[in-house]
Design a protein around this nucleic acid. Structure first.
Lengths: 195, 195
DNA sequence: CGGTTAATTGAACGCATTCAACACGAGTGG
DNA sequence: CCACTCGTGTTGAATGCGTTCAATTAACCG
């Protein structure tokens, strides 16, 4: 899929695709961060996932996108028409790739389900910070999303997220030099919370 | 897959496969109800799904089962060795079937994630009762699982499940002639709660 | 700088949990 | 048929975690 399709730039908050929109394309994040979410009629929002460079998105198996995708930051995204990919790579290869991506996503959702159903706010936030930290090699971790985004991903309110961060910082487990940047101080403590 | 494999009987509470066990088989529920769940080290349990006759289970894409499966009631289960199925039906057909099952499961988990992250106890219970009711054509719906099972599926305690059922019954939305049997009285009310 | 959005913090509230007692129901044995 | 038991379910009271609402502070951007 590397050679196919076009690179497209999406700016902050721009929609990449909408919920219930026809799924005609595959997308791959090249730069920036993407958020996929659902918005209920009553305004309650749930963030299903954050997607980082290298991640494939939009591979919903049905005819429609079940969640929308929005650029969290300015993004470079590779966009490939599904039909073109099938024509170039063959149905079998594409299906295998979809299965691969779907499987990973399924495993992630199973873990997330446990997080949402059976963990405290503190554990959820710890888990989230750790997963952000695991994504980069540097000591300092940048947080690309707002507290509200984190809250909507973790099934909490942004106030609670903020309080839990304050608490983890008070315990010297993490350190936030600024609101969107942190460093892990006691990795084992964080890991045992995130478990 | 119909002709392959063997029928196996599992009795109530018997384990069909364990978490982190090698995934060598596919299973199809023929009679009875199966529960798949994970148990954390600290005793917290999360029920991932209930499986009814016709459902495929054990098709985890990785080498290991990510959740365990237990017979909720006495069960008839068709068990097929994965290799045998691949030999008989071909890799492509099996992969297609796995993709199909995985996709459905993914969609279900996405909905469940919203339920766990963004809905009240009352809404969760309403949603669950409605989904049980939609599964059968009869007026009276049998509940095959305990309140604890329901709670572990909905991210609640069994006391809360019990209270919410009592409340829905007090509002004449459902009626429970006995603890494991109910009838929907105000479908539209239930549906708007379950939304 | 001022203006604006994001984030923090405080106080009060409420939903769900916890802990404990009691009721129900199915199965067993007298 | 009733008494007993054990697992399951219900109900009550108290607690607490997370939310809500409101005010303040911090970060960002012109």
């Amino acid at each position: 899929m590397d050679q196919l399709g076009v690179r497209h730039h999406f700016q902050k908050e721009e929609e990449i695709y909408a919920q219930d929109e026809e799924a005609e394309m595959f997308y791959r994040v090249l730069r920036g961060v993407v958020r996929s979410s659902t918005l209920a009629a009553d305004g309650r929002r749930m963030v299903g996932a954050f997607h980082f460079p290298g991640d494939l998105i939009g591979f919903d198996p049905g005819p429609l996108h079940r969640l929308s995708a929005e650029a969290l930051t300015d993004c470079e995204v590779q966009v490939v028409r599904r039909k073109a990919l099938r024509a170039a790579a063959g149905d079998i290869a594409v299906d295998r790739a979809i299965l691969e991506a779907t499987s990973r996503e399924l495993a992630r959702l199973q873990d997330h389900m446990v997080l949402l159903g059976r963990r405290s706010a503190r554990e959820r936030v710890a888990n989230f910070l750790l997963s952000l930290a695991q994504r980069v090699e540097s000591q300092v971790v940048e947080i690309p999303m707002t507290r509200q985004d984190m809250a909507d991903y973790l099934g909490l309110t942004m106030e609670t997220v903020s309080r839990m961060i304050a608490r983890l910082q008070g315990e010297a487990i993490v350190e936030f030099p600024s609101q969107r940047r942190f460093q892990v101080r006691k990795r084992t403590a964080l890991e045992s919370l995130a478990a």
